[in-house]
Amino acid sequence: MNTTTPRLTADQVTQYQTEGYTMPDGPVFSQEKFDRLFNHFEKKLAEWPYDERPEAMDTPHFSDPALNEWALAPEVVDLVEPLLGPDILLFSTHFICKPKGDGRRVPWHEDSAYWRKLLDPMEVATVWLALDPSTKENGCMYVIPKSHNTGKKGFSDYEDVDTNKSVFPTEIIKSHRKDELAVPCELQPNHCSLHDARTQHGSAANTSDIRRCGWTLRFVPATVRLNPEFQDRQLMYQARGKNLLNQPLADPTKDYTHVNDLRRRLNVKAH
């Protein structure tokens, strides 16, 4: 299926290319379609293991193919086609749900740092879809513009941080960041931001009385290849166009719970 109504303006495409992020206009889904996604997530959250943090709902679509109704929807893929071209694969998704009161901070990081040996080349566009209001008060994401084009280009140096307070165990060292340039990506439910995998971003803890949940949907052009050594990540889905490298692709109607089980056994805690 080809895009018939561009979802990004020319200025937004330019901003993404030069700044490493952009904020599309308007809601992503119809209200009815978004409400069904929201209710579906609420059921998942209610069944989430009590001993696992709700910020850690990584690759939920592997074991819940119903999510692909939204992850592969034209309303979403239309957002990334102007950035990636017509041949697109869904690489990953992640619910990052910060509970009210004690939602953990997301340390400054580049998504690419988690995938440096997994993807070749490193070209990923993330759709950050708000399920709840995402504001400065409840821990919205901040991005550092143009950080995707720094000398490090997505591979800064990292240091350990307190895992009792942070979603991830490491953070970009301060000398490799320009925190004073950080921009908040405040969003209402059913609205989204887009960012490049190499863009530095993070978010504060949620100490407010309002939950903050977002769903990241990560897409790559079909010219990107997965490293077969990573057996816990060998699932990509055709989102649009052609499978240019003839890679093995997942069936969006099939349950791959065994892959998430493998990830748990390997203690994989990343994007």
Rank of each mutant, 00 (worst) to 15 (best):
residue 54 P to L: 09
residue 53 R to C: 08
residue 124 V to F: 06
residue 32 E to N: 09
residue 58 D to I: 15
residue 97 C to V: 14
residue 62 F to G: 01
residue 69 E to F: 09
residue 80 V to R: 03
residue 117 K to E: 13
residue 47 E to G: 12
residue 83 L to K: 12
residue 29 F to Y: 06
residue 124 V to G: 06
residue 106 V to N: 04
residue 20 G to A: 11
residue 90 L to A: 07
residue 43 K to P: 02
residue 49 P to K: 14
residue 29 F to E: 03
residue 29 F to K: 02
residue 56 A to V: 08
residue 85 G to I: 09
residue 23 M to C: 10
residue 112 S to K: 06
residue 67 L to Y: 06
residue 46 A to D: 13
residue 70 W to G: 00
residue 112 S to F: 00
residue 112 S to R: 05
residue 76 V to P: 01
residue 106 V to F: 01
residue 104 R to W: 05
residue 22 T to Y: 00
residue 97 C to H: 14
residue 94 H to N: 14
residue 107 P to E: 04
residue 35 D to C: 02
residue 68 N to Y: 04
residue 53 R to D: 13
residue 78 D to N: 15
residue 95 F to A: 07
residue 60 P to V: 11
residue 69 E to Y: 11
residue 83 L to Q: 14
residue 31 Q to E: 08
residue 96 I to K: 04
residue 73 A to K: 05
residue 119 L to S: 00
residue 110 E to Y: 03
residue 69 E to L: 09
residue 73 A to E: 12
residue 96 I to V: 14
residue 29 F to A: 01
residue 75 E to W: 01
residue 127 V to H: 00
residue 59 T to H: 13
residue 101 G to Q: 10
residue 39 N to Y: 06
residue 115 W to K: 05
residue 75 E to I: 00
residue 119 L to M: 09
residue 101 G to D: 10
residue 94 H to M: 12
residue 99 P to W: 04
residue 79 L to V: 02
residue 60 P to H: 12
residue 56 A to T: 14
residue 90 L to E: 07
residue 32 E to P: 05
residue 74 P to L: 06
residue 95 F to W: 12
residue 118 L to D: 02
residue 84 L to K: 09
residue 81 E to M: 05
residue 73 A to D: 15
residue 62 F to W: 12
residue 119 L to K: 00
residue 80 V to D: 05
residue 34 F to G: 00
residue 110 E to A: 15
residue 99 P to R: 06
residue 78 D to P: 03
residue 39 N to D: 15
residue 23 M to Q: 13
residue 73 A to P: 03
residue 63 S to C: 10
residue 109 H to A: 05
residue 24 P to H: 00
residue 121 P to F: 09
